[in-house]
Computed example of a mutant assay.
Amino acid sequence: MAPAGATAAHGTPGKKPTVVLVHGAFADSSSWNGVVERPKKDGYPVVAPANPLRGLQSDADYVKSFLKSVKGPVVLAGHSYGGAVISKAAEGEPNVKALVYIAAFAPDKGESALELSNKYPGSTLGPTLNTVPFLLPDGGTGNDLYIKADKFHRQFAADVPTRVMTQRAHSRTTEIKASHAVTVSRPGAVTRVIEQAASATTGH
């Protein structure tokens, strides 16, 4: 799948930073469709690369390699598991000027998204998952996780309580009344948060 808005991200850099949108698990880059066009209309180059979803390190390595192809400053936004990916991908990348977490995991050093999802009582993700083994080209194996079809709407798009990770990271927080699939249901509100972070990097 071609990344949404890829041509804009690789063009001549302008005054505004490139917004790079990273989706999470159980989704693809089309989950950003409602968001992509809005900052583009405001003059921001925007791209939503496909997150491979093959493990945190390999996913972060892919995003990091993608970032090296983007000229000029970057605002990196992640949704859900994509938050863990952007945290790792941004390490040592001086062109990344801001990280934006959209209903996302913001892990501390040594933490995983799985650990965070099981950190507090009441997590309902585990029982909704199906595990499907896969074979890698190098002969290695792994497991894909899928939310059961009859559980997907309630599990993935249900409203969620306040997230402790924003407090720990001393993040600037914007509360939006929405489900976890906020990039789909409230793209305008998500865009405003991203553009606020982007404008702060340029002083506008």
Results as ranks from 00 to 15, higher is better:
Thr201Met: 05
Lys41Arg: 12
Ala60Trp: 11
Thr202Tyr: 07
Gly188Leu: 07
Phe66Thr: 04
Val96Lys: 15
Pro127Asp: 05
Ser199Trp: 03
Gly24Leu: 01
Gly55Asp: 08
Gly110Glu: 03
Asn118Ala: 13
Glu175Ser: 11
Arg38Asp: 03
Ala200Asn: 04
Ala84Ile: 02
Ser185His: 12
Ala113Gln: 08
Lys64Val: 00
Arg154Gly: 11
Arg154Tyr: 07
Val47Leu: 07
Gly82Val: 01
Thr173His: 15
Ile176Tyr: 14
Pro49Phe: 04
Val75His: 05
Phe152Leu: 12
Leu116His: 07
Gly203Met: 09
Leu116Ile: 14
Pro127Asn: 10
Ala48Ile: 02
Pro13Ser: 14
Met165Ile: 10
Ala106Phe: 08
Phe66Glu: 02
Val182Pro: 04
Asp150Phe: 09
Arg154Glu: 12
Pro137Asp: 10
Gly139Ile: 05
Asp59His: 10
Pro137Val: 04
Asp150Thr: 06
Gly5Val: 03
Thr166Ile: 02
Ser58Arg: 15
Thr18Gly: 01
Lys148Met: 06
Arg163Cys: 01
Thr128Glu: 05
Val193Glu: 14
Ser171Phe: 03
Arg54Ile: 03
Val100Lys: 12
Thr201Ser: 08
Gln167Tyr: 13
Gly34Thr: 01
Lys16His: 09
Val36Pro: 06
Leu129Asp: 07
Val47Gly: 11
Ala181His: 08
Ala8Leu: 08
Tyr81Met: 02
Pro94Phe: 04
Pro94Asn: 12
Pro161Asp: 08
Pro127Cys: 09
Gly110Ser: 10
Ala157Gly: 12
Asp59Gly: 04
Lys88Trp: 01
Lys40Pro: 00
Val46Leu: 09
Gly24Asn: 00
Asn51Arg: 10
Lys148Gly: 00
Arg163His: 12
Gln155Ser: 11
Ala8Thr: 02
Val74Phe: 06
Asp108Trp: 10
Val63Asp: 06
Ile176Ser: 10
Glu37Lys: 15
Ala60Val: 04
Asp150Gln: 11
Phe152Cys: 07
His153Lys: 15
Ala2Trp: 11
Ala149Arg: 14
Ser30Lys: 13
Val46Ile: 08
His10Asn: 01
Val22Ile: 13
His10Ile: 11
His204Gln: 13
Ala98Ile: 01
Pro121Asn: 07
Lys109Tyr: 00
Phe105Trp: 13
Leu56Asn: 08
Lys68Phe: 03
Val96Arg: 12
Thr191Trp: 09
Phe152Asp: 05
His180Lys: 00
Leu129His: 15
Ala98Gly: 08
Met1Leu: 09
Leu145Glu: 12
